[in-house]
Design a binder for these strands. Structure first.
Lengths: 299, 299
DNA sequence: CTGAATTCATGCGCGTTCTGCATGAATTAT
DNA sequence: ATAATTCATGCAGAACGCGCATGAATTCAG
């Protein structure tokens, strides 16, 4: 049985669509279809319910999914472990961070934890929240730094991953000022439609704002555009396109400069945690050393 | 990458010999050799030190081994989990026991734990200690029942497996009686060579006796034959071939009948625990229910 | 010191398996 | 009713892996 069958399966679980999954796995759809069949043959039970228009997991598939994720991660870790032992020890720390944090917060924070000299080579990948989750699950990175709203449903199963708070942030409604320095719009004012600059759904901030009741459907608010990149939204807001909820960490310079001003009073702010995730399973010595530094840090 | 490459690797680790490992894996040696190379290519570092006459693990190989074991077990568990969820739930309890225990002790004990009606179908495989360890490691069985001498080095890593005591036994030196009912030989008597019926090295009892100082090299004792099967040794002893250390659980009927008698006083007995091993990782609901019964049992 | 034996690696031919392309079947949307 | 989407199947070419035969290196015996 080919180990990449697990990757195929997990991709299919994400997409619930053979054609798209096949494309993501860089295969033709027939080949992909047969590979899923092959996996099912190996497991000796169907994992997928195929009804032409609706692809769903069977009970067996649902049971199998978390195991498959664990196996994929374990495969990756086993390889890294061996490489490290071989001395080819890429002393590289692989970590993912969401776009919003990788620009400003993460670099600063890494210096606090201990300069790069102590960390060794750093391989940081900046991507969406969704991708970061995936990278961590696949074992392609050892850590993932992102925003987290307390008590929101987790994307990462508690049983396999743990997190540690490393800071806090606020999502602040901001927009460009008019000539007199006052906000172009003001949330809560019963005025006309307010153009809203949102996050697209792959973004973690999207989920957080949704959970906070600040989503598309809100009255008096019209989503004007959305982007995965908080910094793109920041630029749009600066140009007077509308109101955006932006992380304070990202926007505080602009606020100080006066190029962005509050479009609502602080009671509307959304407090969020900044956290770092890791797998519960044992990582390489190098990564564990880093984690020790992280948790001994007082934030 | 083929998952059976892990099985190949682990077999090679056990044998440290390509030819024998290839045979065990039912392949020709060249094919096996290439498969190990393929694995090393996938991991991207050599795992094996080949010096024609001496096969050893590299540092990477040593680091890789426990991971490989975990992966193999997890693969097996993932499949069983899916099957159970599919309702094909072979409500079968897969357990291994050493030959010595599977005849007499295990059946009795299972009835104590709760009759087969409560356990469901039972699939017990009786084999050597070494094989039992392997079956458990590979996830082919969920439990393994064997003898255990307290404080002896474990074959099963504490980190991945736990055990629970389920009884105790003694290894008693026994032989056939002469016409007057007295033992043909007597350990400790400074008489001539005593023929000894030993266990071959695949047996767990072999290791226990070795650890107790009752091995080949002992003065006044000449190993006459050895077998993996305690019951074979029992038969040999009954036929007057020599002295054997036999589990009380196996031999007590013969002792009561007088067909076997002590060849040494009780101070020579070797006390052993009877234990059941299980993986620390979560098993199927069915197996966990069984485990609960096991640990709640007072022995 | 020499020849036999053991053990792992390599070359070659063959069969199996997998992929991509083209196409079919089933369902949904317009 | 027709078009579009989506998964399954038939077929041909390519790639991969196995067994067999053989080679190279080391060990052991006399």
């Amino acid at each position: 049985m080919d180990t990449t069958l697990f990757d195929d399966f997990l991709e299919l679980v994400r997409e619930l669509n053979f054609s798209r999954a096949a494309e993501n796995r860089k295969m033709t759809q027939p080949a992909f279809s047969r590979r899923i069949k092959q996996l099912e043959a190996a497991i000796q039970t169907p994992l997928i319910q195929r009804t032409t228009r609706q692809v769903t997991l069977t009970a067996a598939g649902r049971a199998f999914q978390p195991r498959a994720e664990a196996i994929v991660r374990m495969l990756s870790e086993a390889r890294l472990e061996a490489l490290e032992a071989a001395g080819l020890a890429q002393r590289t720390l692989n970590l993912a961070a969401t776009h919003a944090l990788s620009y400003t917060f993460v670099p600063k924070w890494l210096m606090q934890v201990g300069g790069p000299s102590q960390i060794g080579a750093l391989n940081m990948v900046s991507d969406t929240h969704r991708q970061g989750v995936r990278l961590l699950q696949n074992g392609e990175v050892s850590f993932f730094i992102c925003h987290k709203k307390p008590n929101i449903a987790e994307d990462l199963p508690e049983k396999q991953f743990r997190f540690h708070p490393i800071g806090s942030d606020r999502l602040v409604p901001l927009c460009a000022p008019d000539e007199s320095g006052r906000p172009l719009w003001r949330l809560g004012s019963a005025a006309s439609q307010i153009p809203f600059i949102a996050y697209s759904s792959a973004s973690g901030l999207h989920a957080i704002l949704e959970a906070h009741g600040i989503g598309d459907g809100r009255r008096g608010i019209e989503t004007k555009m959305n982007s995965v990149l908080a910094s793109t939204n920041l630029e749009m807001a600066k140009e007077g396109q509308g109101v955006a909820f932006l992380p304070l960490s990202l926007a505080e310079q602009e606020m100080a400069r006066g190029t962005l001003v509050r479009a609502g009073d602080p009671s509307l702010d959304v407090p969020v945690q900044l956290v770092i995730y890791r797998p519960r399973s044992r990582l390489s010595a190098h990564c564990e050393a880093f984690w020790l530094k992280v948790v001994s840090q007082d934030t």
